[in-house]
């Protein structure tokens, strides 16, 4: 079932176009990397604040509120630029364990970010003990592992 879905994606005319068009893949990969930088910055500034580092003179809630839209829109950009890469190399992705680990951790990361992390970041300062630090470490760990698996798809598949 899953394999036939990936075979269908690989067989799309868009996938063929992506592979045949010399500049399509490089341009989309560059845009994906720029979106990754924006996403990493938006996440890191808040995570470091949760750890009691970085911009400590500004409340975590204010930073989180301000950087939320940067985080969300850069993630949308990551998705929009990531999807064509998956389509054009669908079978390579299907057979790569790193792709599946990446997808699983992205789902965990999204759920974590929009539930626990959001609640902790918007909570009143000093009311949650050590939890902000735990959440900051987990958030950095989750999103770092996503970029590690993503890089390894291309290198070790």
């Amino acid at each position: 079932m899953t394999q036939s879905f990936f075979e269908w994606m690989q067989g799309l005319s868009f996938s063929a176009w992506m592979l045949e068009e010399t500049w399509a893949s490089p341009i989309i990969q560059c845009m994906h990397l720029l979106a990754l930088v924006a996403f990493a910055g938006a996440v890191l500034v808040v995570d470091m604040r949760l750890l009691g580092r970085g911009l400590i003179k500004t409340s975590t809630a204010r930073l989180a509120r301000e950087l939320d839209r940067w985080m969300i829109w850069s993630f949308v950009a990551l998705f929009v630029t990531g999807a064509p890469q998956v389509l054009s190399t669908a079978l390579k992705q299907y057979y790569s364990p790193f792709f599946w680990w990446k997808m699983q951790i992205i789902v965990i990361g999204l759920v974590f970010t929009f539930t626990i992390r959001r609640r902790v970041a918007f909570a009143e300062e000093g009311t949650l003990g050590h939890w902000p630090k735990v959440v900051g470490v987990l958030s950095i760990g989750i999103w770092t592992s996503v970029s590690v698996w993503a890089r390894l798809i291309g290198l070790l598949s």
């Binding site: 910055g41 890191l44 500034v45 950087l67």
Partner: peptide
């Protein structure tokens, strides 16, 4: 990501 992400902001 650490360097460029922070510098971008």
């Amino acid at each position: 990501c650490l360097f460029a992400g922070l510098i971008a902001f």
